[in-house]
Design a protein around this nucleic acid. Structure first.
Lengths: 199, 199
DNA sequence: TGGACATGCGAACGATCGTTCGATTCTAAC
DNA sequence: GTTAGAATCGAACGATCGTTCGCATGTCCA
């Protein structure tokens, strides 16, 4: 008995659901939407997940777990504080580019879960925020909480305007953000952008 | 039983709706929720607004119009580029503190409108974004679009973590964001750490 | 062969949604 | 006093929601 079909179908359902949640929003998405776009029947989806909220939960849990271990791995490769900060930002935006739907759902539907499921996601979020806060603290700036959330704001807001296939790459945006954070707009970090014309 | 004038009842309905939309999200809010929390009857609300989406539209339109003219006024009081940028950030966060529900709805429910109503709000948003982008361009940093959206990200993300009555005031946060943007975390303009990718 | 069990789906269930209907009350001008 | 119109609301409408039911399949071991 091969479990592959089951896992593949489940993964495909997660993927489809993430896309639709990202496009229409969780509450505006119906199980019939997911049925139509996944190719599964309405009742058939309930063999794979407990229900609509369970679907959102599992998408968020998987994505958060992935971005968390990825960030820890990215940090482990560097020791210098500013390099560790750059690595975190680079990884976060790379993850956004690789799994845009899941990351948008993570950012935008943070308050759509209830009860115990919301609690568990909140724990993962706390761990991830603490991770960046520690990195910011090493970088020795002002208030690490303010700094960390300023960075999260820059990065998580990108889903409203940034397109990875445009003029600027995710890595380029990451360098711009990290440079902005470390040295400000007029700092030396803006290597990717042409210097401003003096007047 | 004193009856309030039409405009006051309408304003109260907008205010209540903004609070509930901010707390539960637009699609998760029912007209019966608004009826209960506003004290008006379910049918009675339809004498003041065309429907649920019209309610969201008018909340967003009023709020955007207010923050736009407020920002233009705040900018007019300054001439130095960095002071104009500080003024914009200070005003935006002050507006967030004064009308948290409306501003959260503006930030979080940007894609919940459809058709012509979505179009009009999108026009206002574009004007507001262009305003900050011009200010960033004056401040003479890197890519003005990236810089403006980095600032919008920092500022609009605050509704997920910042509480105006906490240890740090909105004005204090504004100064921190503006300083971060202009000079980086260490406030040194980037003199200490080498660039990410020297060439 | 037979039966236990996972997998699948059309159809329907009860609940709840945004909105409207029908009727009543209030206000103000004549 | 009459009446037109604004304001109000209980009740109900049709639609749609998340979920479940009943019943077919397919699969694998006894």
């Amino acid at each position: 008995m091969s479990m592959l079909p089951y896992d593949e179908r489940l993964g495909a359902l997660f993927s489809t659901a993430a896309q639709v949640f990202a496009r229409k929003g969780y509450h505006a998405t119906t199980m019939r939407d997911l049925s139509r776009e996944s190719g599964m029947s309405l009742a058939g989806m309930y063999h794979y997940v407990e229900g609509k909220e369970d679907l959102l939960f599992q998408i968020q849990q998987r994505c958060f777990a992935g971005v968390l271990v990825g960030a820890e791995g990215a940090l482990a490769a560097h020791t210098r504080p500013d390099e560790r900060l750059r690595a975190f930002v680079r990884h976060h935006l790379a993850f956004f580019a690789a799994q845009p739907a899941e990351m948008k759902v993570l950012s935008h539907e943070a308050d759509s879960l209830t009860g115990q499921r919301a609690e568990e996601i909140r724990r993962l979020k706390r761990r991830y925020a603490d991770l960046l806060e520690a990195v910011v603290r090493e970088a020795d700036g002002g208030d690490p909480t303010v700094g960390a959330y300023a960075l999260f704001g820059m990065m998580n807001w990108t889903y409203t305007w940034f397109r990875p296939d445009g003029r600027l790459s995710p890595d380029g945006l990451a360098e711009a953000f990290a440079a902005l954070f470390l040295h400000g707009v007029r700092g030396d970090g803006g290597a990717r952008t042409p210097p401003a014309r003096p007047r």
